[in-house]
């Protein structure tokens, strides 16, 4: 299925023939397009890219690409991706998640992946709802959003992933909107190029359980300022903006996670350390 190694690849070469399970109109279709466009633009080959995910609508994305995929357990995509990237630094590793998988069950891993700063690109498709389980409040759901599981609203304030990412040490922070696939592709390509842990929050509407999110198309707008490398300034902007500033918001200079170094010994030599001398 893969084209010959010499040919330049187009976005379609990164799209598998496996039909997505998503609802018609789901924002994740566009995100898939943006991912494949970004990979083509980066000049990568599918066999050298791994897409790792957890559980949820957005986490179905790996099999829809022609890349190596890992569709693991709920909430642990960052852990699996960390192991993969540390063991295989030659691969480009993308991590796909959603607001439930990434911010709720996987919240702890999010903090530590930001801290650890392994060279990963973390794409969270945020639609402020649990879609796969048919409409429950997620960490980014508004407190007054009514649902069967939280009648009258959860009453719990929203999680602010971009600020959390900054505070935890992510080296690249951006917000994208699925309604702008080309813009999202450009942000993703930049995120992949940037060393260390890159976090891209993609606002990706769920037209089934959050039809109100169709209005996001009107609300999304380019960030009025250029990205900064000052986390404090970035945090202030993110905390005071309207939540629809689209673009790269922070690019840091932290050193990526230190991986393996070349071997200096052998197993036999390590074993000899236990051999008794003298006596």
């Amino acid at each position: 299925m893969n084209p010959p190694a010499s040919a330049a690849l187009a976005a379609k070469d990164f799209k598998s023939d496996y039909k997505p399970i998503w609802c018609p109109g789901c924002g994740d279709y566009s995100v898939l397009s943006s991912v494949t466009k970004a990979l083509a633009a980066l000049g990568l080959r599918p066999e050298n890219v791994a897409v790792v995910s957890g559980i949820g609508c957005s986490s179905r994305i790996p099999a829809y690409t022609t890349c190596y995929g890992f569709h693991g357990v709920h909430g642990r995509s960052l852990a699996a991706a960390t192991g993969l990237k540390v063991a295989r630094p030659d691969l480009t590793v993308l991590v796909a998640s959603g607001d439930g998988d990434g911010y709720s069950i996987g919240g702890n891993h999010f903090l530590h992946a930001c801290r650890r700063n392994v060279d990963l690109t973390y794409i969270v498709m945020d639609n402020h709802v649990y879609g796969m389980t048919k409409g429950q409040a997620s960490p980014t759901t508004e407190p007054d959003w009514d649902s069967k599981l939280s009648p009258g609203g959860s009453g719990v304030r929203e999680f602010h992933p971009l600020v959390i990412a900054l505070a935890s040490g992510a080296n690249f922070v951006a917000r994208a909107f699925s309604g702008d696939p080309n813009g999202t592709a450009a942000i993703l390509a930049e995120a992949v190029r940037h060393p260390g842990f890159s976090f891209v929050e993609v606002l990706s509407p769920c037209v089934t359980f959050r039809p109100d999110q169709r209005a996001w198309k009107e609300r999304a707008h380019p960030a009025p300022v250029a990205p900064t490398d000052d986390p404090a300034r970035a945090a202030r902007r993110i905390m005071t903006d309207d939540g629809f500033n689209i673009g790269v918001l922070y690019k840091g200079n932290r050193k990526p996670y230190r991986g393996a170094v070349p071997a200096t010994s052998t197993v036999a030599e390590l074993g000899r350390r236990f051999e008794l001398q003298g006596g």
Binding site: A79, A87, L91
Partner: peptide, 15 residues
């Protein structure tokens, strides 16, 4: 939870 998923990821990569 991270430990076990990390080693699954690494082993998926061949290590």
């Amino acid at each position: 939870l991270a430990s076990i998923n990390m080693i699954l990821g690494a082993s998926y990569g061949g290590a």
